[in-house]
């Protein structure tokens, strides 16, 4: 039995309103990926994570907890949990991933920064001011909470003098490029995904890779942000052979991830159906969204490996 949607939405919205993120994560974990990279603080152009990649291991921890609670008598106490969460950050106690669990996600962020540097892009990072955009709460229809938060995020970017952001995941790209302009007056920010930047710059490559990859397009990139050609251009240049599954490009199939916060079992069933389509065309899968990555990995188990696109681009571009 899923938890009552009212209380789950309430907890996520309360967290965004009170703590700036659907699932507040320790600052040290949020910016730890950049520890050894010496990225300049701020600047007109910044890499913007929107905490989306860093949040994944925390969301997974919370989803596991939800699955356990949903099947137990404790589900009845979810309204009380929401009330308490307003005063004490309960969600932080519920989801505490180990450093080992967080490492692959930090790797994605460090790889993307390295790719941009090798492509000759000059950029800074906002560290603790790199804020979550509110993507999940927007999807759940908590418009007023997200609108207030969007103004806070934009004000922070203005304060740092940021003119252009380079995003990593599709959801942050969509929020900053398509959703925020509808909510924030006089919004003036150039937003590009790192895949668009790298495709435009022609990422210099040092070695040729081999193998076949089933390409899973992100719904948000493909249908809402028109990012379909760039990942193909970049992967083709590495030497990898791209195999297109049933439903690809603008007609891609969802990984199930968006249903996970309220209905984890439905999300898993959808991911399993998508894995079947991908497994039919290649032994290995490539994604470009951290939510797709984690959902498909979970559904595939040992039967098929999935990696983020930044892994292959890094392998081919590093000397």
């Amino acid at each position: 039995m899923p938890l009552p949607s009212k209380d789950v939405i309430g907890i996520l919205s309360d967290n965004l309103r009170l703590r700036g993120s659907v699932l507040p994560i320790p600052k040290r974990s949020a910016i730890g990926w950049a520890r050894d990279l010496n990225l300049p603080r701020g600047g007109e152009t910044v890499i913007y994570t929107g905490l989306m990649v860093q949040l994944i291991p925390y969301i997974e921890g919370l989803v596991k907890m939800q699955e356990r609670l949903g099947d137990s008598f404790l589900a009845r106490f979810t309204p009380l949990g929401r009330w308490m969460n307003r005063f004490v950050n309960l969600s932080a106690f519920m989801a505490r991933p180990s450093a080992r669990t967080r490492t692959p996600y930090d790797r994605i962020l460090a790889d993307v920064a390295g790719l941009l540097q090798r492509a000759g892009v000059e950029f800074g990072y906002l560290y603790e001011d790199d804020l979550y955009t509110g993507a999940l709460t927007w999807d759940l229809g908590a418009d007023e909470v997200v609108a207030d938060h969007a103004r806070r995020v934009y004000h922070t970017l203005e304060r740092h003098g940021v003119k252009q952001v380079i995003t990593i995941d599709p959801h942050t790209t969509n929020m900053l490029r398509t959703v925020y302009p509808k909510m924030v007056e006089n919004y003036d920010l150039r937003v590009s995904s790192y895949l668009e930047v790298l495709a435009e710059r022609e990422l210099p490559l040092q070695s040729t890779l081999s193998g076949e990859l089933a390409l899973h397009d992100s719904c948000v990139f493909a249908r809402f942000e028109n990012v379909t050609e760039q990942p193909r251009t970049l992967l083709n240049a590495t030497g990898m052979t791209i195999r297109e599954p049933e439903h690809s490009g603008r007609l891609t199939w969802c990984c199930g991830g968006p249903a996970e916060s309220l209905y984890p079992k439905k999300a898993l069933a959808q991911a399993q159906r998508r894995v079947e389509q991908l497994r039919a065309v290649a032994p290995e899968g490539v994604t470009m969204c951290p939510l797709c990555l984690v959902n498909l990995q979970k559904a595939a188990g040992e039967t098929m490996p999935f990696r983020d696109i930044s892994h292959y681009l890094t392998q081919a571009s590093r000397s």
Partner: peptide, 16 residues
């Protein structure tokens, strides 16, 4: 239909 409405993935394939 609350559960149905919140189950939608907002993936946009229908809209496409």
């Amino acid at each position: 239909e609350t559960e149905t409405i919140y189950s939608c993935l907002l993936c946009g394939l229908c809209e496409e």
